[in-house]
Amino acid sequence: MKKIYFTLIALLASINMFAQGWPANYSGVMLQGFSWDSYDYSQWTVLEKQADDMKGFIDLVWLPQSGKCIETTQVMGYKPYYYFNQNSSFGTEAELRSLIAKFKANGIGAIADVVVNHRNTDGWFTFPAETYNGVTYQMLPTDICKNDDGGSTEKQAKKDGVSLSNNDDEGTDFGGCRDIDHKSENVQKIIKAYLKFLKEDIGYTGFRYDMVKGFIGTHVADYNDATGVEFSVGEYWDGNQSIINWINKTNKKSAAFDFQFRYNVRDAIGIKDNKIVSPPNWSKLKSDYNLMHDPTYRQYAITFVENHDMQYRSKNEPLDPLKRDTLAANAYMLAMPGTPCVFQPHWRAYKQEIKSMIEA
């Protein structure tokens, strides 16, 4: 009898190790806890003071990339350099740990912004050596995709007598950083250690994977299995069918942002090319061309109406903001299937209204 009991325990433990992708029938609300250059509003100490106010309304907060970058100025973190040094433009590692602990005490999970498609270097080829729990981790030039930066990296490597990976990039190239080869055993070992560190040591509840068009979704499944993470969402910025294909590549072990939902909302509001082009036409919301309308994939739909890549930044970077009907857009999102992700500027501007929507 004891043998059967311990076998059952081992089996349940092994099952728990594997990623779920996104919980079935999840009814929580996520907040994107930052916008572009929101250093004042998104400092760890500032967000921690808001935890009590979020309690009962916000279940997950997606935080900006929290690792230290090579730059000495304020940066958003999308050119990551260090993995195990969590002192960033948003605060110290101690402040981050305090924030996550405060969130947990209020029933709120923190989602890490995981940027592993590419990585910054000192010079062209040098990655930092980082020691964690007595093990030193360092990516090598041979971990850089052969065709990185449209071939510029290979030209420089030949000039410097440096060897790159024999593998080309599996997806979209990211200029200005080294695109790393996820087929490399060294890369896989380092990323798995990094993600375990984020989840088991720092205390993150889940991961938001940046720019997953740059590498195959099977790697996300592998990384999630290695950490047993429950919440995972990928930024696959593309059309609906391409996003579905990516979710399938992860063996449904990750959710994805529902970009088509966002575009349906924008079009219904009457926005095109950053201009108001027509009166609102809410009938356009009837479209079933999005993840959240699909019974098979709505579990994996993270809906949003605006984010840091679409907001208005400046006259030189107008991007693709909503411009109007922000409350209507959020009301529709919060009433629909999927997991809604509220944008921080909307939360700040319309907190009481959004709280009422969440209650409803």
Results as ranks from 00 to 15, higher is better:
residue 209 Y to L: 15
residue 271 I to V: 15
residue 194 Y to S: 10
residue 239 G to T: 07
residue 204 Y to W: 00
residue 247 I to K: 04
residue 208 R to P: 04
residue 212 V to E: 05
residue 185 E to T: 15
residue 200 E to I: 01
residue 244 I to C: 05
residue 211 M to N: 09
residue 270 G to S: 03
residue 264 N to C: 08
residue 255 A to P: 03
residue 212 V to H: 04
residue 248 N to C: 06
residue 228 G to L: 00
residue 254 S to E: 02
residue 252 K to Q: 15
residue 203 G to I: 00
residue 256 A to D: 00
residue 215 F to N: 11
residue 252 K to V: 03
residue 192 K to I: 07
residue 237 W to A: 09
residue 220 V to E: 05
residue 249 K to V: 02
residue 192 K to R: 12
residue 207 F to T: 00
residue 254 S to K: 02
residue 187 V to L: 05
residue 202 I to L: 05
residue 255 A to Q: 02
residue 182 H to F: 08
residue 213 K to R: 15
residue 242 S to Q: 14
residue 272 K to S: 14
residue 208 R to A: 04
residue 269 I to A: 05
residue 219 H to E: 11
residue 248 N to F: 07
residue 266 R to V: 09
residue 215 F to H: 12
residue 234 G to T: 10
residue 243 I to M: 14
residue 235 E to H: 03
residue 265 V to N: 10
residue 213 K to I: 09
residue 202 I to N: 07
residue 250 T to G: 09
residue 259 F to C: 06
residue 220 V to Q: 04
residue 193 A to V: 03
residue 270 G to Q: 03
residue 221 A to N: 13
residue 201 D to H: 13
residue 255 A to I: 05
residue 186 N to S: 08
residue 251 N to G: 13
residue 228 G to D: 02
residue 217 G to M: 11
residue 209 Y to V: 09
residue 272 K to Q: 15
residue 202 I to S: 06
residue 234 G to W: 02
residue 216 I to F: 11
residue 270 G to C: 06
residue 239 G to P: 02
residue 192 K to A: 04
residue 184 S to A: 06
residue 205 T to N: 10
residue 257 F to E: 04
residue 224 N to A: 00
residue 186 N to L: 14
residue 208 R to K: 14
residue 253 K to D: 01
residue 191 I to L: 13
residue 252 K to C: 12
residue 190 I to G: 06
residue 213 K to N: 12
residue 183 K to E: 08
residue 262 R to Y: 15
residue 186 N to Y: 06
residue 195 L to C: 07
residue 256 A to F: 02
residue 182 H to S: 08
residue 207 F to G: 01
residue 264 N to V: 07
residue 201 D to N: 13
residue 227 T to G: 00
residue 183 K to D: 10
residue 259 F to V: 09
residue 205 T to A: 14
residue 217 G to C: 11
residue 259 F to L: 13
residue 218 T to E: 15
residue 219 H to T: 08
residue 198 L to K: 01
residue 230 E to D: 14
residue 213 K to S: 10
residue 254 S to R: 03
residue 242 S to A: 13
residue 225 D to P: 04
residue 204 Y to R: 00
residue 257 F to A: 02
residue 254 S to Y: 02
residue 186 N to Q: 12
residue 186 N to D: 11
residue 234 G to D: 07
residue 248 N to Q: 14
residue 229 V to D: 00
residue 216 I to Y: 15
residue 252 K to S: 12
residue 255 A to G: 12
residue 263 Y to D: 14
residue 222 D to I: 08
residue 262 R to L: 10
residue 224 N to I: 00
residue 232 S to G: 05
residue 251 N to H: 15
residue 271 I to T: 11
residue 245 N to T: 11
residue 239 G to C: 07
residue 258 D to K: 04
residue 227 T to H: 00
residue 185 E to D: 15
residue 195 L to I: 01
residue 216 I to Q: 13
residue 200 E to P: 00
residue 260 Q to S: 13
residue 204 Y to G: 01
residue 188 Q to W: 08
residue 249 K to A: 12
residue 195 L to Y: 03
residue 260 Q to V: 10
residue 184 S to E: 04
residue 267 D to F: 12
residue 269 I to K: 05
residue 249 K to F: 08
residue 231 F to Q: 00
residue 191 I to A: 03
residue 266 R to W: 09
residue 197 F to T: 03
residue 214 G to C: 13
residue 214 G to W: 09
residue 220 V to W: 06
residue 268 A to N: 14
